[in-house]
Design a protein around this nucleic acid. Structure first.
Length: 189
DNA sequence: AATAGGATTTCCT
DNA sequence: GGAAATCCTATTC
């Protein structure tokens, strides 16, 4: 992946990430999935009440201000990890939340991590995706251009649909959620 | 089928 | 002290 890909408008990056691959090489196995659902979160330069960065820089959202193409991992509701990719130029906050992927390789490891069998249940939600791919806070701020955890370029087959983001309060009128139409691996319809 | 509650980090009032 | 970019389980209709 090219660094410039991420150094753009967050919603554009969120859209273009659909069809790309999320890869995690771990212990000799490769976990791979096609990204089918994302959400864009702006920083304090755009009105976005739901963004962590809306009230300025904190210890948690610090990666959102860092250079693009990096991981922003945080814990939600005390248990679940969320994986974001940082966007926009360095110093300008922005991130794309990966909400769902279609599992392609390393299915057995994912099933072990998740404790469920169904291929469609492995990664159809931001918390589940992190559990399946064994992603936690130790990956925070890691570079996703090249490395064990990274995003590879892919092409999208299907139509992109936008809608309002899920599980947030504030900014519900913004169409910043993107997913592949009629794809059975997204978290919701 | 639908709803309610729990797990438990990080931030803001 | 309370809410949050969630998910799983148990209880009730």
């Amino acid at each position: 992946m090219d660094r410039d890909f991420f150094a753009r408008d967050t919603a554009e990056v969120a859209k273009d990430l659909l069809g790309c691959y999320l890869v995690h090489e771990i212990g000799g196995t490769e976990l791979r999935g096609r990204i089918v659902e994302t959400e864009a979160y702006y920083g304090d330069h755009v009105e976005d009440p739901a963004s962590h960065a809306q009230n300025g820089r904190t210890d948690r959202n610090e990666p959102m201000f860092e250079r693009p193409g990096r991981a922003y991992v945080y814990v939600c509701y005390g248990i679940h990890h969320m994986l974001n990719v940082t966007t926009e130029v360095e110093g300008k906050a922005g991130a794309v939340l990966l909400r769902a992927v279609e599992p392609l390789e390393g299915l057995e490891v994912m099933r072990e991590n998740r404790g469920v069998e169904g291929r469609e249940e492995l990664c159809n939600g931001p918390g589940k995706l992190c559990q399946a791919f064994d992603i936690d806070k130790s990956h925070n701020q890691e570079d996703l251009i090249e490395g064990h955890l990274r995003i590879d370029k892919g092409s999208l087959s299907g139509e992109i649909v936008s809608s309002s983001r899920i599980g947030i309060t504030g900014g519900e009128d913004l169409d910043l959620r993107f997913h592949v139409k009629d794809n059975s691996f997204v978290s919701e319809d």
